[in-house]
Design a protein around this nucleic acid. Structure first.
Length: 597
RNA sequence: GGGCUCGUGGUGCAGCCUGGUUAGCACACUGGACUGUCAAUCCAGAGGUCGCGGGUUCGAAUCCCGUCGAGCCCGCCA
């Protein structure tokens, strides 16, 4: 038996009433969170997006309301009218912001009923992802999850405020666009009016933002949806959102502080945290050497130390050989982990091998000496080894000798994992850093050519332009990543705005003039009509919000996310479509069973 | 493309290794009692193709094979 609003107007939210509101007549609306029926008194905890307020229905004072309240079940939609009262002494609830008071109900309306729920709203216990996604609108009713979206809103508002204040204008770019080569796999959309041709959904607004600079917009930003048809992870969804920024007439060292200002504004506005600037900068080479990663987690130490020289020509054959053939020996110290079991140590070795290393040397440092399967090879260098790593009794040392960057990368992974496992990651620390001076190219051995490390429009450093001719592998780029707590949350570059340099890059990438013209002709044309120096960055909004919210999956900050296979259990997307639609598009579906017999 | 974990009433789990009562527990749900609870309490009850298919066996939730789905990871993500 449900009723219409009947002219009732909400006077307060369920989160705002306090002791000072006593005796005030109020009208609240929301969902029945919990109901406690004492036969006489019925307590209903009414929840809206702002909080929970206890409503008490007394049969002696409001008979009709009490009769209705007996039929109320979880998640019924209610409107109550009553009077705010201080709770009787001793019955206050300190866990609720509204716990000083309750609403003594005079009238109650059931605005809508609800079936028993597939999972409880009230506790935050784990529910199967599939069920959560199928009933996502119920999952989103859970207060902690909803708070993530309030936070996300605060972040985008802060970003917009800051960038507008810096003279940026927000511009939308096409969702239906042209497929361009390289990068991730594209999502394609068939064209009815051009049968056999396809739009691609943008992996990022990369080309358009450069064209806006040629257009003279000077400072552009967009909170842009991006699409990539790759395999998904907890921090990767098929569609995600970037804060996309581009400016003209700025070089790297002017752009980075501008972006730092934005991050500082976000942390200040959203969390009241004042970040120190400038953010530390590490070169790509340094990040790799010291942390074994181009997105180092700087919340903790465990820095890698280079031990190549220590083992060169020594008795430890395996490592001596690595040192003698251009490889590197790297190591780090895990303080106080010398008590690791033999099995745990062997598991680490297996893990190092699964990451691609030929092996792992583990060493327990004790007061008596070194404990390790290869201790006798290490004894001759023990003192220097301990000194270089700053190690003492009780520590665990891990060493890998291999080609670079593999040796560092393997230890870099172990570094992060062991730090987490041993509780060495301070939960409240926010470690931001810029990684700069990325190589312009990386060599693609399979195809015998160079690939862009960032993208083909990334400018080389001014001093490295000549290197593109003589030694492309050593040319460094005006590219940069922003790293937060070991996660890449953004990346960008200064773009090439001079046609000849762009041509040279295409040449090295093995993209011929005709091919470049066919694929990026519109951009090359634009570069000939007065392109200003320009650069920008794209920040992963979902990842940034996830870190701020303290959740470890971006699913918890996206309202309607998809599963790891890219499906949506709620809408059942993707789905088959009526044949007539395919006919209009000139599309025939083959190999529906993926070609399997 | 590959590896690992999981799948048991609406939800969360136990049972599986070592095959053999009526598949157990908590929450939710239904009915009843109860005027100061806040995870209300107490009593009673209903609710299960053990993801699906095949095999082994006298007998399968349990062992084997396949398959589907979810998660985490590697590859991939300029």
């Amino acid at each position: 038996m449900t009723e219409p609003l009947g002219g009732w107007k909400r006077t307060h939210t369920c989160g705002e009433l306090r002791g000072t509101d006593a005796d005030r007549p109020v009208t609240l609306m929301g969902w029945a969170f919990r109901r406690r029926d004492h036969g006489g008194l019925i307590f209903v905890d009414l929840r809206d997006r702002d909080g929970v307020t206890q409503c008490v229905v007394n049969p002696a004072e409001a008979g009709a309301a009490h009769t209705r309240a007996e039929g109320v079940r979880s998640e019924f939609v209610l409107a109550v009218r009553g009077v705010v009262a201080r709770r009787p002494a001793g019955t206050e609830n300190a866990r609720l912001p509204t716990g000083e008071i309750e609403v003594q109900v005079r009238e109650l309306r059931i605005l809508n009923e609800a079936r028993p729920l597939p999972f409880p709203i009230e506790d935050e216990g784990d529910v199967d992802e599939l069920v959560r996604l199928k009933y996502r609108y119920l999952d989103l009713r859970r207060p902690p999850l909803f708070q993530n979206f309030r936070l996300r809103d605060a972040v985008t508002r802060s970003v917009r405020g800051y960038l507008h204040g810096q003279g940026f204008i927000e511009v939308e770019t096409p969702i239906l666009t042209r497929q361009t080569p390289e990068g991730a796999r594209d999502f394609l959309v068939p064209s009815r009016l051009s049968p056999g041709n396809f739009y691609a959904l943008p992996q990022s607004p990369q080309l358009f933002k450069q064209l806006l600079m040629v257009a003279g917009f000077e400072r552009y930003f967009q909170i842009a949806r991006c699409f990539r048809d790759e395999d998904f992870r907890r921090d990767r969804q098929p569609e995600f959102t970037q804060i996309d920024v581009e400016t003209a007439f700025l070089d790297r060292d002017d752009l980075l502080p501008l972006i730092e200002g934005m991050i500082v504004a976000v942390f200040r506005d959203v969390q009241g945290v004042e970040l120190a600037t400038p953010f530390p900068r590490l070169t790509y080479a340094e990040a790799l050497a010291r942390f074994g990663s181009d997105k180092p987690d700087l919340r903790f130490g465990l820095e890698l130390v280079d031990l190549t020289e220590l083992f060169r020509g020594g008795e430890f054959q395996a490592l001596a050989q690595v040192a003698g053939t251009g490889g590197a020996v790297k190591g780090f110290r895990l303080p106080g982990a010398g008590g690791l079991s033999r099995k745990a140590a062997d598991d680490l070795t297996a893990e190092a091998k699964s990451l691609g290393a030929k092996g792992l040397v583990w060493v327990k440092v004790t007061a008596e000496g070194l404990q390790s399967p290869v201790a006798r090879f290490l004894e001759p260098v023990r003192e220097v080894l301990l000194r270089r790593l700053g190690a003492g009794p009780g520590d665990l040392l891990l060493l890998v000798g291999d080609t670079m960057p593999l040796a560092a990368a393997v230890l870099g992974r172990l570094r992060v994992e062991l730090a987490q496992r041993h509780g060495l990651v301070p939960a409240d620390r926010r470690a931001l850093a810029w990684i700069v001076d990325f190589p312009l190219f990386e060599y693609n051995a399979a195809e015998k050519r160079w690939d862009s490390m960032h993208h083909p429009f990334t400018a080389p450093r001014d001093e490295d332009v000549a290197l593109m001719e003589s030694d492309p592998g050593r040319a460094l780029a005006k590219a940069y990543d922003l790293v937060l707590n070991g996660q890449e949350i953004g990346g960008g570059s200064i773009r090439i705005h001079q046609q000849p340099i762009q041509q040279k890059v295409f040449e090295l990438l093995g993209i011929g003039k005709a091919e470049a013209r066919a694929k990026f002709g519109f951009l090359l044309d634009a570069l000939e009509f007065g392109a200003p120096p320009m650069g920008g960055i794209a920040l992963g909004l979902d990842r940034l919000v996830a870190v701020l919210a303290g959740v470890d999956s971006i699913r918890d900050v996206i309202a309607f996310p998809k599963t790891q296979k890219g499906t949506d259990p709620m809408t059942d997307a993707p789905s088959p479509v009526p044949p007539v639609l395919l006919r209009d598009l000139g599309i025939r579906v083959v190999d529906v069973e993926k070609g399997k017999p």
